[in-house]
């Protein structure tokens, strides 16, 4: 395993830092993807490739189109134009649930745990190919009991790994923000995805939990999955990502290893602004969190249907 990872990382060493650079072994490739809201071009990506087996971070200022790109790639939104594929399979017009079944599973910026189901039921829901989910066999428990038991065992393992086993029978609504993030990640793993896409996994997570969350994200890669995540937390990006893609105003403006990207003038212009030459750990944490929360609040309001 470890050899493969270092191999994948090593392969990235030769990749140019140009936006839309070609990767040696891409799991996702996309070209000319555009999406407009009213007059605004939210996403306008000429070319994007995601390397298999590594952790790729997608960063950029608010409104850069990161979440919209997530939505487009996973079939939750339809682009105006563009082609993209996962493992060589074209995904244009493929509905979201099929994308997930193919092995490309996402989480949401505002966690979507099912708060009126218990933690374990949330987990069981994630399992795919359940016989008990078919209408005509659902009514007969004998047809699905054994499969359900197996799924439950797998779910319990994951809950233990994510340290949620204590909460097994609690309603998911009673979990803290960080625990919800963990539950959502664990639930996504029930689908057994090849590519897991995390939308701001650190938002609203208290610092104590952040370290263990980082560890979990790394462990996803270590077991051979590809990770793509959107994040504002630069510590996390620097810490765990193997490759960074920077978006601004809907476009990819830069790519590269974390070190090279953070030194890139285009990135500094687009995103890092005044903070770029201070060590990020020295920036007032409270201030950053406040900013993040304000963003989150604004975005959550956007989502309430008017």
């Amino acid at each position: 395993m470890a050899a493969e990872i270092s191999e994948a990382r090593a392969a990235l060493a030769g990749v140019s830092s140009e936006p839309g650079a070609s990767k040696p072994d891409p799991i996702v490739t996309g070209s000319n993807i555009t999406r407009t809201f009213g007059g605004l071009k939210a996403v306008d990506v000429d070319k994007i490739e995601i390397q298999r087996g590594v952790i790729t971070a997608l960063i950029g200022p608010n409104g850069a189109g990161k979440t919209t790109l997530f939505n487009l790639l996973t079939g939750f939104d339809e682009p105006d134009a563009g082609d993209w594929s996962f493992n060589g399979k074209a995904l244009a017009k493929v509905p979201a649930y099929k994308v997930a079944r193919l092995g490309m599973v996402r989480t949401f910026q505002l966690t979507k745990v099912l708060s009126k189901l218990t933690v374990i039921e949330n987990m069981r829901l994630g399992a795919t190919g359940q016989r008990g989910e078919k209408f005509f066999s659902a009514a007969f428990k004998s047809l699905w009991r054994s499969q359900e038991d197996a799924n439950t065992a797998r779910a319990d393992d994951l809950l233990q790994r994510f340290k949620l086993d204590e909460k097994r029978e609690d309603f998911a609504g009673s979990l803290s923000g960080g625990q919800r993030k963990l539950l959502e990640m664990a639930r996504a793993l029930m689908v057994d995805p090849e590519l897991i896409m995390l939308d701001e996994p650190m938002a609203g997570v208290n610092p104590a939990l952040k370290q263990s969350l980082l560890g979990h994200v790394k462990s996803l890669r270590d077991e051979g999955r590809t990770v793509l995540f959107v994040e504002h937390d630069m510590d996390m990006v620097r810490d765990i990502s193997d490759w960074v893609i920077v978006m601004a105003q809907g476009q990819i403006v830069a790519e590269g290893t974390p070190q090279s990207v953070m030194a890139d003038q285009r990135v500094i212009d687009a995103y890092l602004g005044a903070h770029h030459d201070t060590d990020i750990t020295n920036i007032d944490l409270a201030e950053l969190e406040q900013e993040a929360e304000a963003e989150l609040a604004a975005e959550s309001n956007e989502e309430t249907p008017s």
């Binding site: 939505n71 939104d77 249907p305």
Partner: peptide, 8 residues
């Protein structure tokens, strides 16, 4: 005259 909704 309604606007299409933004998802997600």
């Amino acid at each position: 005259l309604g606007k299409a909704q933004r998802i997600g």
